[in-house]
Structure formats: C-alpha cells, structure tokens
Design a protein around this nucleic acid. Structure first.
Lengths: 168, 168
DNA sequence: GGATGGTTACTCGGATAGGAGGTGTCCGAGTTCTAAGGG
DNA sequence: CCCTTAGAACTCGGACACCTCCTATCCGAGTAACCATCC
C-alpha cells in the first residue's frame, strides 16, 4: 500500500505557487521543470487540486496555476483527501456476519465491530495530524531552516517564471 | 489507496484462535467457513502471519493454526506490519533535488524535506495508535459489549472446531 | 498382545492466472495576445 | 491614426495505453494418524 505520489507533487507545487501575488500564475510546464517531473502527469494532479478548490487554473497565454486561498487555510488533510477521497483506508467488510459464526437476527449486532472501531481510531489520529498541519507551517519551517543560497536560488526562479497579463 | 483485506481477516482469525488452549488448533478450512471467506486465500494470509511470528501452523491431520504468543503480546501494529511491511506509505521522492530548483551541492540540503517530516509525523501517530492497541483489548471490549446469545453461539462453534491430537 | 511398516487422509505452502487502481502519455478544446487590413 | 477581425500560440483538460500490486485459485509437498500384518 502506498500513497499516490500526487500528494507529494501537489504539496510541493502549492508551496511554490505561494510566491504568486495578485493575478500572477505559474504554468504547469514551469512547475514540472522546477522539480524534473512529467508535465502531462503533473497537470493531471494539479487538475485534481483545482477540482478540490485548492488551486485555480487560468487558461490561455500567460495563464497557469495559482492558489485558490491563502497558505494558512490549506491543510495537509485537504490535499490528502483531494487525492485519496474522504473514505477510510481500512474498509470493514463485516465478515463477522457472513459465515457460520454469523447470526441472522440483526439485533445481535448493535455495536460496531471492535476491529473496525480500533482501525478507524488509528486513522483518525493520522487525519488529525494532517488536519493540524497547515501549508503555512511547513513554509515557515522551511524559511527558517533553509540554506540562504538555496532560498535566493528559489526566489530568482520564481521571479523568472511568474506570469500575468499585466506583467508581460 | 486501500489497506489489504488480509489485515481484517488476520485480526478476526487471531481473535478466534485465542480460544485454543494448549496444543489445540483450528484448521484454515474451518476459519474460512466461520467468516464465509475463500479458504485458499485466507490460508495465504495466515501464512504471512506465521512468517511474522504471530501464528503457528501445525501440518497433518488434526493440524491447523494457533497463536504463537498470548493475545496481550500481539498489537495491531504487528499485524499491520506483517502485511504492509515496515515502510512508510508516503515515500519521499526528493523531487526538490531533481529539477531546475535543485542545487548540485548537497550541503544545501542538511535538513530533511519538511513535507516528508510532516507526512511521517502523521504516519507515526497512526502507528502509535496501532501499537497501543493489543488484541486482548479488543477481545475484552467484545466480551463486555457482545450479545449473550452471540457469545454462546461462538463458544459452541469453537468447541466443535478445536482439533488436537489428544482430543480425537 | 505388541510392535512395525505401508497406506491413507488431512493439513499447509508455493507457483500460477485474473482484475483493479495508480502511472504515464498524447491529442484536442478553450482563451488570449498579436498583427494585419480596412475605414 | 484607430478600430475590427482573422490568425496563431500558449494554456489547461479529458481520453487513451501501460504497468504494478492486490486478489483469487489450483495443485503439489509434507505430516501424522490409522490399519493390517508380522513377530
């Protein structure tokens, strides 16, 4: 079992898009080049985030992507659910009610399956941690600990790749 | 992304095997019938748990499966890792070091990727919850809340399906 | 009557197909800028 | 000189193969009990 790599690509892209101000955007092609990814496939992932309301897409020349809301309003859980859905990774099949051990009368199953409960509780801990982490937190940690030269390199890159109808 | 159903089948089977005492076993065929599962496929999952040291298998007539250790020494994490391995579901691809944004000198990447750190922290919360839940906890909850008739039904079933060389 | 060896029946175990979901790519739809042509 | 209009270039978006992993099944290997035979 492995998480879709779209989550990683999406978070990296969103953090980079945070440098856009106003109507500025960054095209998918540039984002793909920034991280050495397949452009076609990255765009597929970005589309998912657009549908989820995390990003906005602008068509046409000087178009591209930008954040749909501020960094501090985007949680990791939001991005996770954009790709994985809001279902649980442990899906109880209720096998306790399927074989010889089962009883026909539903009255005997008033409580949820304890296994289901325990697995869901663990998942809830996972989701809570994701929900409590905002992209702004990650950005702050990065700005604090990152190498100065690296920061400058990234800033230089963003200035070159920002696009907007005004800033031709 | 979805968890292998082997986890659910394995936990249910282990809890049922807890009724075995001494050399008693329950064959895979009976376990499959108990929950209405495919015998061949369930055995495949049980084998995984045998390899992981959670169950023991006894070949030959009157053979079957039994627990390799007491219920209170088996955590959900142990079973989870038996099927999913001890790797993380979020595997960082280090894309920050692959494209135009990357810098060749490794010195600029002294810190782990903040995204990786955050995702792993969430996973750790998940695993902690699983590690803190023992099968004996689940069994206790079940015994406390289960319907009396259902309990009797299960006890009756286990008495019929226990096998041991002594108890021919 | 007891021991022994072959047979039998039952178990687990690994090797082999089938299917769903994630991965990766291509080409088309839409939009905006641009530039040429006419008023 | 200004407005209109047709074209082109660039963007995103959905439809189409590929590949990996989970699912599912079958048949063979191994073991212990059983039973007939022999001592």
């Amino acid at each position: 079992m492995q998480l879709s790599e779209g989550v990683e690509w999406g978070i990296h892209s969103a953090l980079l898009l945070a440098s856009c101000q106003g109507a500025e955007t960054i095209p998918g092609k540039a984002l793909a080049a920034a991280y050495g990814l397949s452009e076609s496939y990255l765009v597929k992932h970005l589309k998912v985030m657009v549908t989820a309301g995390i990003l906005q897409s602008v068509p046409g020349p000087y178009g591209g992507y930008k954040l749909a809301k501020p960094l501090d309003q985007i949680t990791l859980l939001r991005i996770y659910e954009a790709f994985e859905g809001n279902g649980t990774i442990f899906r109880c099949q209720e096998i306790r009610r399927c074989g010889e051990l089962a009883m026909k009368n539903k009255q005997h199953y008033k409580h949820d399956c304890q296994i289901k409960t325990a697995m869901h509780r663990a998942e809830q801990a996972y989701r809570n941690e994701l929900a409590n982490t905002k992209l702004s937190d990650i950005a702050a940690e990065f700005l604090q600990s990152a190498d100065k030269k690296l920061l400058h390199h990234i800033q230089s890159w963003t200035q070159q790749n920002h696009r907007s109808p005004v800033n031709k």
